[in-house]
Amino acid sequence: MGKAILHREGAVMILGGGIAGIQAALDMTELGYYVYLVEKSAAVGGVMAQLDKTFPTNDCSL
């Protein structure tokens, strides 16, 4: 199996694609950097995606 090496200048790796990782990724992108968001499960979202509503406004969380 060949090994892919990705090299971009100004790149950051974010380990964990929950709400914290996603927000950091969005901010880093907007700040002009290339982002690798590395998540161990099949989809980003983390625990927040499991929540129905959020405290204290009981807004929808998705």
Binding site: R8, E9, V12
Partner: peptide, 29 residues
């Protein structure tokens, strides 16, 4: 909680951005 996490994420982006500022914009397409 969520707001604290989100705030920390932006804060972390700020720190990472200072580490990388020389390379800013070079990797984006």
């Amino acid at each position: 909680d969520i707001p604290e996490s989100v705030t920390q994420s932006s804060g972390a982006a700020s720190l990472a951005s200072s580490v990388l500022k020389q390379q800013r914009g070079k990797g984006t397409v």
